[in-house]
Write a protein that binds this DNA or RNA. Structure first.
Lengths: 340, 340
DNA sequence: CTGAAAGCGCTTACAG
DNA sequence: CTGAAAGCGCTTACAG
């Protein structure tokens, strides 16, 4: 590829020292005479020398890069996650190698294996993985690994995630407490772990309700279009529910627009709630009640944890991790009927 | 890091052949006897051998990875861009090393230099860069590079971008043609190249209009909040404009919600248009007229081009690249007054 | 078709 | 404080 690339040898020759000294000077080791160091730095700058990363990795056994193995790169969730990860990685001057596998388990295995020799640690998100041995089989041995939003693999790896179940329960209770009885839930994709947990939280809260609450579950796919379709389906029913709880904000927005089109008033005729607190949630009309989950924070914390593991050369992990609890953000879309 | 990692030597010993043969067998070279190849593959699988990427890179002078140097990773734009890039990279089994510099030029230089030895080619987006020598100074020599949405550096590198200027002119003309005369433009960040070009297109179309058109320019920051603020500012005026053209959809949505809150009807009282065609644009009420720009396509095409350059070991580039022209998507938010 | 050997560009004990 | 040398784990001419 590179034809006339400048190597450490060129710098050594030009500075009239050995390559070992150049290496030491450039890496800030103590045992280099100050004038020599200055000389080396000056030559390196003049020659526009940049160390060859692969060579350095091979001999130092470290890459200064973190691998990300994600199901996808697209959408608000991953955008936020990347922001959080990138933030702490940049602060510590680490690089990011990303890899997506689009839900294909075999592809994921390939992606995991391909990380060997490219990264010093791994952040993996695997909401579809159920097979417990899968990670063990595909992860390069002794590579520090932290899980994000992944069904727990019996504590073998530190894991960071969102408490979707508790979040969905909290929202459902909020709807019940503000007087709603018939509540429709627009679910997310069945294969998705977050989606399942949110549904489970909804059902549990409904079942535990003293009042004669009635739940209705519609299916959805986490995108606006399916929320819109669910909204239209509800409009076709003889009677609207008291509230609609969408498993994420995008679906809630889709549903809201279906209601808007039909001139159904929110929250007067039906309350509406989402999950995620995407930036738009506060700007729609009426503003959307939702569960706030800091995805960026999730990514950032997982990254910090991973960097610590790498730091103490601790591939086992085991302990550690956290489940972040989302917080209820009440906005106009679930105001009590009385108050509107 | 890795303590008991399995190397090519282990495979060779176990398969009773030389490391050279293992290398050839695993890389699918022709000159290996079939039974030997089978034997090697079998042993490699049994030992869970994965080649060490850094070692391979160092000796083969190739990394199978593309570097991405972007101003940011966050938001709809980058999410879509990544999707397009990731799509074609994955198809060809290439890896992605990402790097963001958050508008800091020095950071960008560091990021560019750090790519040496890590990647075989670079995709760089530098909407803030004005200094023409900057890239030349910081790019590793002889590294194939393709520019995305970057003010052209006198054709030294192939460049892919969006024709923001033509797009903004097309939208402005659409508004004029549907009878609007007083048109407010909500601009994007001044430092942003896309934003500047869109403003320029608006102003040029307004100036070129035969009719007595009147333009008003408000400042914004490409986010919903600034669109909302601009909408409120317009509402405080004695008289609403005939139309509002926001430099991107997020600001248009923010503005729409300001109008909704004030019960100003769109498009009856004021038409509204955006730019980008984000997924939500068709779901808001009324649906939003906008310019469709396929960011994912932009990323995909730039990536394909880069892979071709790498393929023919063509670092010079020079020729090539494309400026994608956005297309006008007319929706309800700019319907003629008569028809509503 | 196969192996021994050189080499990729660094880092790091080991001597001095 | 400095240099010569070994070694990181591969690939690839070069012989045979």
């Amino acid at each position: 590829m590179a034809k006339p690339a400048i190597t450490i040898k060129d710098v050594a020759r030009e500075a009239k020292v050995s390559v070992a000294t150049v290496s030491r000077a450039l890496n800030g080791h103590e045992n280099v005479a100050e004038p020599v160091r200055q000389q080396v730095l000056e030559v390196a700058r003049r020659l526009r020398y940049t160390p060859h990363a692969a060579a350095r990795s091979l001999s130092s056994r470290s890459t200064q890069t973190i691998g990300l193995v994600l199901p996808d790169l697209h959408g608000e969730f991953f955008s936020e996650l990347m922001r959080g990860i990138d933030g702490v990685a940049r602060t510590h001057r680490w690089h990011l190698l990303v890899s997506s596998y689009h839900g294909d388990q075999e592809q994921q295995g390939v992606a995991l294996q391909a990380m060997r020799g490219r990264v010093d640690g791994l952040l993996v998100m695997s909401p579809y993985a159920a097979d417990p041995g899968f990670l063990k089989d595909n992860l390069p041995p002794a590579l520090p690994t932290v899980l994000i939003n992944t069904p727990l693999v019996d504590g073998q790896y530190p894991a960071f995630g969102i408490d979707d179940h508790a979040g969905a329960m909290a929202m459902t209770r909020h709807l019940l407490e503000t007087g709603r009885r018939r509540i429709a839930f627009i679910a997310g994709p069945e294969a998705n772990h977050d989606a399942r947990e949110r549904l489970r939280g909804f059902e549990e809260a409904m079942a535990g309700s003293a009042a004669a609450a009635q739940g209705i579950v519609l299916s959805g796919g986490f995108d606006e279009a399916s929320g819109y379709a669910a909204g239209q389906a509800l409009l076709r029913e003889a009677r609207l529910p008291d509230a609609v709880f969408a498993a994420n904000d995008m679906m809630a927005l889709g549903c809201l627009y279906a209601f808007n089109q039909a001139s159904v008033r929110v929250p007067q005729q039906v309350a509406l709630a989402g999950f995620d607190d995407i930036p738009l949630a506060r700007f729609v009309h009426p503003s959307l009640t939702t569960m706030q989950v800091s995805i960026a924070d999730l990514g950032g914390r997982a990254t910090s944890h991973l960097l610590h593991m790498i730091d103490r050369d601790d591939a086992s992990g085991g302990v550690g991790g956290a489940i972040l609890v989302p917080s209820l953000i009440v906005r106009d879309s679930t105001s009590r009927r009385e108050t509107s």
